[in-house]
Amino acid sequence: MTDSRHASPTRRAVAAGALGLMAASTAQAASQDERLVYVGGQADKDDQGIVAARLNLVTGKLSPIGVVAPLLRPTWLVAHPSRPLIYALSETGYGPGEQGQVHALKADPSTGALTVISTVASGGGGPAHMSLDREAGGLLVAHYGTGHVAALPVRADGGLEATASVQANTGSGPAPQQQGPHAHAVMVDPTGRKALVADLGADRIFVHDYDAATRKLGPPDEASVALPPGTGPRHLAPHPNGRFVYLLSEIVPETRTYRWEAGRLALVQTLRAGGEPPINGAEVAVSADGRFVYASIRVEHVIVAYAVDQASGELRELQRIASGGKTPWSFALDPTGRWLLAANQGSNTVTVLARDQASGRLAATGQAIAADRPTCLVFPAWG
């Protein structure tokens, strides 16, 4: 397998020329009413990788820029909260003893162009998810392939250093895809001192101590919680108030509300989010004002909207709406909260849904762009 560091001179020249053309046209088209969005996916060809687009915040029109970083399988992306940096994993390393990779890329906000500034081993096989710590001095990586969770230091220039800490969790479940641990998401809690890991294979949310100064992860502690066998926890989303955490499970599509207090999770509510397997859950997110939660359900091809009880954190289903494509792997709310973009892996499209900020309800717009097997969307704060 190859990535952008090992591309042939011809490929690098073609990619650089294409980026130059795109940069020129995009710089002319960009306006204050537009926001940059990056799309990651399962692209595994030399001329594919991270795609950029611009969303018109007034009309919802999504305009493609094109491939801005020809990386191998960039299935998850994270934007630095204040600096023009994007972090992308390459979901590779499924062979014995192999590791995936994580790339740090410098962005040109005026054009969307990305330049790789460092590439390091991810700390395990088959990386699936990443998040930055509160100080953005560390990047945490969850590995579906091997179940490892790793912490990598972020350099002063935004590049990445080799892993500072790796933890190997254990566990299994009754479903065919649960023969071993499969860490599918990782997040740092609001205090910055704990890392929560949703492990699909082990049917657990592992809780680790995390030292932001040294980027060291402790072993899973007694605060880790078990889910019913065969549930398959997939993704986590914190409430802005720091008191609640929402979990979406994959094998049995359910949303769970947890109260987060003193480093412990307490289950508040469980709701069925979809039908019977093989219908499965994919992504969960909370609106910036904390009033609504959204979840994507694959096979049913829908986005589910929930209202949040601000006192208890409990959810009430408001709506189930078609994502506008097939297999909504992930989605993202734009910074204004007026639009929701869905990455429809099964139909090779990114679609735009309008969002009523008062009611939380979504509506189709008919806006869409093509993207090769999209799995992730990110709106950088600096874009």
Results as ranks from 00 to 15, higher is better:
303 I>G: 06
382 W>G: 00
7 A>S: 13
40 G>D: 15
145 G>R: 08
380 P>K: 06
204 R>C: 13
182 H>M: 15
13 A>H: 15
67 V>W: 08
4 S>Q: 10
205 I>G: 13
206 F>M: 04
128 A>H: 11
65 I>W: 05
266 A>M: 07
304 V>T: 09
378 V>F: 06
300 E>M: 05
331 F>Q: 08
93 G>H: 10
51 V>L: 02
200 L>C: 07
76 W>Q: 14
152 L>I: 06
24 A>P: 12
55 L>D: 02
77 L>I: 05
199 D>H: 15
202 A>F: 15
106 K>R: 02
136 A>C: 05
41 G>F: 12
216 K>H: 00
285 A>T: 07
157 D>K: 15
378 V>T: 08
161 E>R: 01
383 G>T: 00
195 A>M: 09
261 E>G: 04
216 K>Y: 00
295 A>C: 12
227 L>Y: 03
168 A>M: 13
288 A>S: 12
229 P>G: 02
358 A>K: 15
224 S>H: 11
166 V>E: 02
170 T>G: 01
349 T>F: 04
49 G>V: 07
141 V>S: 11
166 V>I: 09
230 G>F: 10
329 W>V: 14
7 A>E: 14
95 G>V: 07
309 D>H: 01
65 I>M: 03
95 G>R: 08
134 R>D: 09
380 P>R: 00
164 A>Y: 01
336 T>R: 02
320 R>C: 06
284 V>C: 13
271 L>E: 07
